[in-house]
Every structure is written in C-alpha cells, then in structure tokens.
C-alpha cells in the first residue's frame, strides 16, 4: 500500500483493487446497446415509489446491494462510503446513509462525481487508512428534469445538443485484496471554464475540462493515449466528443479509436431520441460498474482510463448569465485477468 505523487495532480496508487461492482439502470438504459451488461434493469422509472427522489435512492440501494454481493462483503465490513449524486444537498447518497449507517463522506462534482469517488477511495486505501471502501454515484432522469429543466409533462423541443440524464446507479467496492481489476493511478481535475453558457450544450462546455485532465494525466505519468485500450469520458456525448477531438488536436494531442464516451454509448442515438446522449453521475457510474468492469474482469480490455466529466452549474447561475465551469477526474485501471 502506497501513494506516490506524480507531477502536479496525479497519484500512483498500489494495491487497490475493485472487489465488486453493481450497476442498476432504468428501462430506457436497459433497452440501449449496453442493456445486457447491467446487473438489474428496472421495468419502469420507479412508479411504485411515492416520489422519484425515493426511486433514485432505491436504485442506488440496489446498486450497493449488487456490489456488496459480488465483493462478498456486508455493510458491516465497509469502513467508509464515498459517493454523490446530482440532487440538491446530495440527498440520494445522504438519505441512503440512514439505511446503511456506515461512515459516509458525501461528494459532489456533478456528473464527474463517480471518478471523484473512485479516486478518493483509492487514495484512502493506498494511504493505509480504511481497508474496504464503497464508492458510488446515481442519477434519475425524472428528478434531474424537475431540478434542472421543466416538469416532465411540459411539452417542449430539446435541442440537438441536449443531454438525457440517465436513470442509473453504479457502486464499486474497493479494497486491498488482489482481484483482476486494479486501480493504478488517478488525476484530480481542475475547474476549466471555456465560456459556455448554454445548459443545453454541456458537451462542448465540458470537453476542455476533459482535455485538461487527460493531458495532465499523460504528462504526469509519461503515458500516451495508445497505452490504453479505451479512454472513456463521462458524458460529453456525440457533440462533446467531436469538440474534444478538435480541441485536443489544436493542443497537439491526437486521439484514435480508443476514445469513447459513457453517455454516447448508453443509448442508441438512431432509435432512442436521446439527442447528445446520456448524462448524469449515474451514467459513467453504471457504464463502468456494468460493461466496462466486465470487460476488465474478463481481460478483454487491458487498460482503461475513465474520465468522468461534470458541469458545475446550477439553475440559478445560468439564469444569472454565468458561464459554466466544468471539471473532470481521471482514474486509470488495469486488468490482471486472463487476456
């Protein structure tokens, strides 16, 4: 167990392993191209709960459940829970703490919360503090709509760059027991504000933050993008990825086929009417805890750089004409499984 600082913002961690992952999604996410890789797919958005806020807590709880089951540990074994969500006062994560009664550190980086949780968890473990950590992030389409956009039944037209907040939760149990998936290094991002003001185009606002973190990671570790089988950003979506490629190229970094995006992969753009693709903290959390973790587990994917991206605005700030500050945190994972 050890942490070593590399460069300005990157930490190399040793002996931190993914013990188990849980990914639970809503019906639309389940019907998407990655549907079969999630542990559970809800048949509806949680109609049986008296509010969708409660449904969001329930979907997070189910993700916790799956992660514990696969890690073969129980709540009593978890030393600390790190996680967050999109709702005011991160109520989904905090209210779930009533049920598990474990030490909890709530985190917020908007849609970058999942990699923030993973990174913090890895740091704590490698630093020799706790021995088993639960990390998570969750979101629900209908709770995000009412907080950030309009009532669900209000008719309006989404722009082509508007994101679709995913109903999804991902939880990952991290620990020091060797398993096929190891966390190797992580980079905490800086806030980058490129001057975007359109909350219906978070992809282009977040792309420079993703670039900043990826470039910092590569500089600090000496890696190149070719060292990774896949580099997954969080929720830049179709347009955000286009902007990232252009912006990176202007700065002398050329991405190849390894560059992908969790939000872009979550839905079928042709049939699911999700415009720019998925977003929300649960988007990168579920795509990692479901499909990506499975590919790492099987050894099909050897090295992954996961860079969740977050737009750190609130309805108040964009109504006041403020630009959108963004952030991205990166976590590098390697498969020790059979390739």
């Amino acid at each position: 167990m050890a942490v070593k600082q590399l460069g300005a913002a990157t930490y190399q961690v040793s002996d931190v392993y993914v013990q188990g992952t849980g990914a639970v999604v809503g019906p639309k996410e389940g019907a998407g191209p990655l549907g079969q890789h999630f542990d559970r797919v809800w048949p509806d958005e949680g109609l049986t709960y008296s509010s969708y806020e409660k449904a969001e807590q329930a979907i997070l709880w189910e993700a916790y459940d799956e992660a514990l089951k696969k890690a073969q540990v129980s709540w009593e074994d978890i030393d600390v829970v790190l996680g967050g969500d999109l709702l005011d006062q991160i109520i989904t994560t905090n209210f779930s703490g009533r049920q598990h009664s474990r030490p909890l550190a709530g985190l917020f980086s908007a849609c970058a919360t999942f990699t923030e949780s993973l990174a913090m968890g890895a740091m704590l473990l490698a630093g020799g503090g706790p021995r088993i950590v639960m990390t998570s992030a969750a979101s629900h389409h209908l709770t995000a709509e009412r907080q950030f956009r309009f009532p669900v039944e209000l008719g309006y037209q989404r722009t082509p760059t508007a994101a679709w907040t995913a109903t999804a939760a991902g939880a990952v149990v991290l620990g020091i027991n060797p398993t096929p998936i190891q966390i190797e290094a992580l980079t905490f991002g800086r806030v980058v504000d490129i001057g975007g003001t359109d909350p219906n185009d978070m992809g282009s606002a977040m792309a420079p933050a993703a670039y900043d973190t990826i470039a910092q990671f590569l500089k600090d570790t000496g890696h190149t993008v070719q060292d990774f089988d896949a580099i997954y950003t969080g929720d830049l979506g179709h347009f955000g990825i286009t902007m990232l490629r252009h912006y990176a190229e202007q700065h002398g970094l050329a991405f190849g086929d390894e560059l992908n995006d969790c939000g872009r992969s979550l839905y079928d753009a042709a049939t699911q009417d999700t415009h720019n693709g998925g977003s929300g903290p649960g988007c990168s959390a579920s795509v990692f805890a479901g499909p990506l973790a499975r590919h790492l587990m099987s050894g099909e994917m050897r090295r992954l750089l996961l860079v969740a991206t977050g737009a750190l605005f609130s309805p108040t700030t964009y109504q006041q004409g403020e630009t959108i500050p963004c952030i991205a945190h990166a976590v590098a994972l390697a498969s020790r499984g059979e390739g």
Binding site: G195, S204, H246
Partner: peptide, 17 residues
C-alpha cells in the same frame, strides 16, 4: 481569445436544428 475561438468552433461544429 482562446475562449472566443472555442465558442466560435462550437457554433461552427454544432449539429444544426
């Protein structure tokens, strides 16, 4: 000017309604 350039690129590449 970098911000301006970026916003210009955004407008240029943005999918049209």
């Amino acid at each position: 000017s970098e911000k301006e350039q970026y916003q210009q690129l955004t407008r240029q590449l943005m999918p049209k309604r």
